[in-house]
Simulated scan of single mutants.
Amino acid sequence: MAHIDYYLFLLSPFTYLSGMEMEEIAARHGATVTYKPFILMDVFAETGGTPLPQRHPSRQKYRLQELARIAKMRKMPINLHPAHWPTNPVPASAAIIAAQNAGGGDVGKLTFALLRSVWADERNIAEEDVIRDCLSEAGFDPDIAASALFSSTDTYERNTKEAIEAGVFGAPSYVVGDEVFFGQDRLAYLDAHLAEQ
Rank of each mutant, 00 (worst) to 15 (best):
1 M>L: 13
2 A>N: 13
4 I>Q: 13
5 D>W: 01
6 Y>L: 06
7 Y>I: 00
7 Y>P: 03
10 L>R: 01
12 S>E: 09
12 S>L: 08
14 F>T: 06
19 G>P: 02
21 E>Y: 12
21 E>F: 02
26 A>E: 06
27 A>L: 13
28 R>K: 15
37 P>F: 13
39 I>P: 00
40 L>R: 07
41 M>S: 13
42 D>F: 04
44 F>Q: 07
45 A>G: 11
45 A>K: 15
46 E>L: 01
47 T>P: 00
52 L>M: 14
53 P>F: 14
53 P>Y: 13
53 P>S: 15
54 Q>C: 08
57 P>M: 07
60 Q>Y: 10
61 K>T: 14
62 Y>I: 07
64 L>D: 02
64 L>Y: 12
65 Q>G: 09
68 A>V: 01
70 I>S: 10
71 A>K: 07
73 M>V: 02
74 R>T: 06
75 K>W: 03
79 N>W: 00
80 L>R: 00
81 H>S: 13
83 A>M: 09
83 A>K: 14
87 T>V: 14
89 P>A: 07
90 V>R: 06
91 P>F: 05
92 A>R: 03
92 A>L: 12
93 S>P: 00
93 S>D: 04
94 A>H: 14
95 A>Y: 06
99 A>N: 10
100 Q>K: 02
103 G>D: 10
103 G>L: 04
104 G>K: 10
105 G>K: 05
105 G>L: 02
105 G>D: 10
106 D>K: 06
107 V>Q: 10
108 G>H: 07
108 G>W: 05
108 G>Q: 10
114 L>V: 00
115 L>E: 11
117 S>K: 05
117 S>H: 01
117 S>E: 03
119 W>R: 01
121 D>I: 03
123 R>C: 07
123 R>K: 14
131 I>P: 11
132 R>H: 04
134 C>Y: 04
137 E>S: 13
141 D>H: 09
141 D>S: 13
144 I>Q: 08
147 S>V: 14
147 S>P: 09
152 S>D: 09
153 T>S: 12
154 D>M: 02
154 D>L: 08
155 T>Q: 12
157 E>N: 13
157 E>I: 13
159 N>V: 14
162 E>H: 09
163 A>K: 06
167 G>D: 08
169 F>A: 11
171 A>L: 10
175 V>D: 04
175 V>I: 03
176 V>F: 00
177 G>T: 04
180 V>G: 01
180 V>Q: 00
181 F>P: 04
187 L>N: 08
189 Y>F: 13
189 Y>T: 03
193 H>T: 00
193 H>F: 14
197 Q>T: 02
